[in-house]
Design a protein around this nucleic acid. Sequence first.
DNA 1: GGCGACATACTGAACGTTTAGTATGTTCGA
DNA 2: TCGAACATACTAAACGTTCAGTATGTCGCC
Lengths: 207, 207
Amino acid sequence: MTTAIDCFARYGYQGTSIDRIASAAGVTKGALYYHFRDKEELLFEAVKDRIAEFEERVVGSVSPVTDPPAALAEIARVCVHIATKNNLRRFILTLMVEALDTNPRLSQAFRDILRRFRSYLAGIVRLGQEQGVFRSDVEASRAAQLFAGGVIGAELQHYQDPERVDLGVVMQGVVDQLVSWLTVDADQLPHGVHAKRGARNNRRESR
Amino acid sequence: MTTAIDCFARYGYQGTSIDRIASAAGVTKGALYYHFRDKEELLFEAVKDRIAEFEERVVGSVSPVTDPPAALAEIARVCVHIATKNNLRRFILTLMVEALDTNPRLSQAFRDILRRFRSYLAGIVRLGQEQGVFRSDVEASRAAQLFAGGVIGAELQHYQDPERVDLGVVMQGVVDQLVSWLTVDADQLPHGVHAKRGARNNRRESR
DNA sequence: GGCGACATACTGAACGTTTAGTATGTTCGA
DNA sequence: TCGAACATACTAAACGTTCAGTATGTCGCC
């Protein structure tokens, strides 16, 4: 199964034949069919395995959360680690994109995992807001979407262009940027942001 | 060719058979081979077309740049538009991810386009720094990576979960966050960011 | 105008290869 | 001996590509 995970991560589901997995694992197709009903069952088992690992790694790494900025930084570090030291993130991203219009059931599984991830992140943001560390005029779910998106975008750019995109540095930037944004009060935005400032003030007053 | 673009955007290259394109276009496979040498030539023509369109749309939309924050906001708006009104962004993202380990030549094409995009973004950030609108202690290329990553992450989350992820709102957040980060001076970060503040001060002094 | 020669844009069938899956055979340990 | 865990040989369908043939358009010559 480890071999299947590696092949799916690199070539995707459609691009990975049973023969490829079998020969990479040094067994025959028949042996694979002994263990798995069909190709799709192999895929789903692999996905289940990787999703469980991801959630254990991410959620497990910062529980309980007491310091929200440090927690976000730690999650970013874990993501950098799993993106560079093994293929867990690559697996998830590759198959998530592939599944969008080709496999509704798989797409739903990935939707769920990302929803849980964002929900977990939103919890951290909310804790920061309760502690007064983060400002309260931002919806926690929006901040979570930004963070999750930043993580995904950083990883994809790194996979695509490892020479130019240092994942650790970009991911640190993702955290810095979000934490900075969540800790800046609208009153303290520097002068020179003309239209921006006006828009922000309007938002405050409507609350 | 329009049909091929649509199929590639949704199902990827491997997941799109010549038969599928042919029947979707209402012609035979032979007719496709009359026009294109092979499946891969069709792919490359499609990619060339979409890349040209993307660059025209994005770069063309905010030239010349005089107001960097507004330019970034406009680029985000253009990305939202093309991501929701046609399949251009979907095409690029789907094939970019698929090409990572399956097609080195195509992967290079996508690396190039993303490098150009980031380079363009970095130019806007640098202009903002020269104008004194953006702070100068951030490398423009890093800011560009963050913005590009934010855009990609927002789009992917939206494609995956359109119910929960409003692309316009998240993309606006991407811009707000980056502009806010680029316009906050380290001295003006609010109190209460203990470890963070220390780290930032050290960085200033080493300069 | 008509016709032959040629070009263009297809068609349906055929080709060779690859795919996921299946049927049957083999080996080894309990 | 039996059954788990394979291996081998095979199948039907799908894949990308090619082929011979067809329909239509264009051009130049008589």
